[in-house]
Design a protein around this nucleic acid. Structure first.
Lengths: 360, 360
DNA sequence: GGCCTTCATGGAACCGGTTCCATGGTCGTC
DNA sequence: GACGACCATGGAACCGGTTCCATGAAGGCC
């Protein structure tokens, strides 16, 4: 269609001048700039980012790696990241890498190696040292959400503390017979979320002088996952706890539905607390420890773009042989930002009904 | 890092030969190809798609426009589209455009005009004639999911028929007092899904000789949306229908929860049917008309890539002045593919209990 | 008035590939 | 033996921008 040469010709200037006028870099007189802009507007000129990135090394686009799209937390993060990037004129290229994905190596060795983006945001995907090195070698900054990545800035919540707080809420209501339903360590693709929440639970229980043996059940991180597990746990009246701490709101919803199905009243006969702050929590009147995925997404974008701005001088496709490892750390960018969670009390939790405890 | 010139030098051939060897186009002897590939491998060469697309006009990437990410249907479509594109070596660039988005013009005039992709998939976003023209002028094929776009191939289900089938299922069980809970026409960003489903419902009712006045309630397209509406509709025993046809499974879930809350038994006292085939339907034992978003996504990608293959000869950044409108239609690509839905009967529907009908 | 600095602009190289065109060698055929 | 078809390769132009460098004009200062 129309190239910058056409604009230059129409405005009666050289390509170089047209480029300066449009990009705002370098010296251009006010009138010339106006002429060029008018000419560009007239023929509907839109710059080709390909051509520009070929020489500048900047692509104005960011790659996002994420294991799920339809799960609430990830969907929210994705929406906020996309929004924030769009605001800044960046494109977002999405790589969906489910935990058991076979594509993983291909994405790293082929797609990411193509250097199509200025930076990468990795959401809930723990990267191996090799993978981080790979990205570093490409000179592309990396920001993680949801857990620490060695040598990269990370936005996260304190899962141990959140789980401890949730458990302490139940303890403070007087519960002693508490069970934790969370994700299994086996398919713990996303950092150590599952085990951290378990650890927080155990820490709180042990601090209260309670045993934690037999108090953990794993479930799929979904509403049906919680439902199935709930039917199993609550089915036997003699082993029924007075409260359950669910590792996610969706699990908690499933547990509540299971309880209702079995005729167990929430919170009178069973208290349930979750972690997330899912919008459906209101409907289920679920007490939960709210985290804020949209804030995490927005912050990740700001962090990444700030890092890019720092590098601004350095052409990204610089030819230096390699970046010294210590130089990366010297950036001061490898620290992690911990975002707050807050307890939202609704009516799925209350003091336990006075009754004989069936469990030891 | 390493450019194709380095590879050529190492292999002892010209850039042109190296390019041919690596891309597989044109004549190269077997030994030369082997030498080049070995050299490329040795220095870890990865082609720059930017440079390539500059001359070929192909970017090996596809833009996806979608109004929501976290709603089930859209999330599923997204996952399947991304997967299918990845398989074919394409990148996916995502534009999330909520219905009321102010970014819309910016996305079309700035982001999409940058010509960073070979084609576009629009999911549940009705494009204005201007917008379609815009894309056509760029010479980029367009495939829609979820409703007809003038002058572009579209993958969709027959919403009218699906709604009719769902309603007929209730009618065939003996229900006469049926209500439809669906999306409002007002915020009907996504094509005519809402009104089509309403029309299907009305057609079935009228074919059975039933009145449809006062039989429609709007709700947000979510579980809480259905829940709120359910409490309102079912709260008044004298006006309570014997069956509800929900425009989506998530609405249906909300309705079922509202019914349970009010002590109304499903399906004995109230039948509920939805449209979607949501994975949670099993848990709610919801009878539903299943559509298959992953199939829609996969098919959209195949359709788009096929269109791209057709154009293969024509360089995408061709300089012809403009494409004749009739030539677009002559492509034969503007027909729409209608995918089947299927009725999945579970236990949220049954014959109505014999009782006096309170409504007229 | 001469010199240095700052601003404005044009020419040309360059980013990293692809592709057109020209050259030359091989082989088959009449 | 000459001619044409086909294969293999190299040189160079090109895609559409950005940026370096050179040139020249205008203004400030001694």
């Amino acid at each position: 269609m129309s190239a910058i040469g056409d604009v230059a010709r129409l405005a009666g200037v050289a390509k170089a001048t047209a480029s300066r006028a449009l990009s705002g870099r370098g010296y251009v007189s006010t009138e010339t700039r106006a002429k060029v802009i008018a000419a560009a507007h007239e023929i509907g000129y839109v710059a080709s980012p390909n051509a520009a990135s070929l020489v500048t090394g900047r692509t104005q686009s960011v790659g996002v790696i994420i294991p799920f799209i339809s799960r609430w937390f990830f969907g929210e993060v994705l929406e906020s990241v996309e929004q924030a990037l769009l605001d800044q004129g960046y494109d977002m290229t999405l790589y969906n890498l489910p935990p058991e994905s076979l594509e993983r190596d291909r994405v790293f060795d082929f797609f990411l190696a193509r250097k199509r983006f200025d930076g990468i945001i990795s959401v809930g995907v723990a990267l191996s040292e090799r993978e981080v090195d790979h990205l570093h070698r490409l000179g592309r900054p990396l920001v993680g959400i949801g857990g620490p990545i060695r040598g990269a800035a990370t936005i996260e919540i304190d899962d141990v503390a959140a789980a401890r707080l949730a458990t302490e809420h139940l303890l403070s209501l007087g519960h002693r017979d508490i069970v934790h339903v969370g994700g299994s360590q086996v398919d713990e693709m996303d950092f150590h979320v599952h085990s951290n929440r378990l650890r927080g639970f155990q820490a709180a229980m042990m601090a209260a002088g309670l045993s934690v043996s037999g108090c953990f059940y794993s479930a799929e991180f979904t509403m049906p996952g919680g439902y199935e597990r709930g039917l199993a746990i609550l089915g036997d009246p003699r082993r029924r706890p007075t409260a359950i701490f669910a590792a996610s709101d969706e699990i908690a919803f499933g547990l509540i539905l299971a309880a209702r199905e079995l005729g167990i009243r929430v919170p009178t006969e069973l208290s349930v607390i979750g972690i997330d702050g899912h919008p459906h929590a209101e409907m289920f009147r679920l007490t939960t420890l709210a985290q804020h995925p949209r804030a995490q997404g927005g912050l990740a974008v700001r962090t990444l773009l700030a890092e890019l701005a720092t590098k601004d001088g350095t052409k990204l496709h610089t030819r230096r042989e390699s970046i010294a490892p210590d130089q990366c750390d010297a950036d001061g960018t490898s620290d992690s930002i911990v975002l707050a969670t807050n307890l939202v009390i609704r009516s799925s939790t209350s003091a336990p009904r006075a009754r004989v405890t069936h469990r030891s």
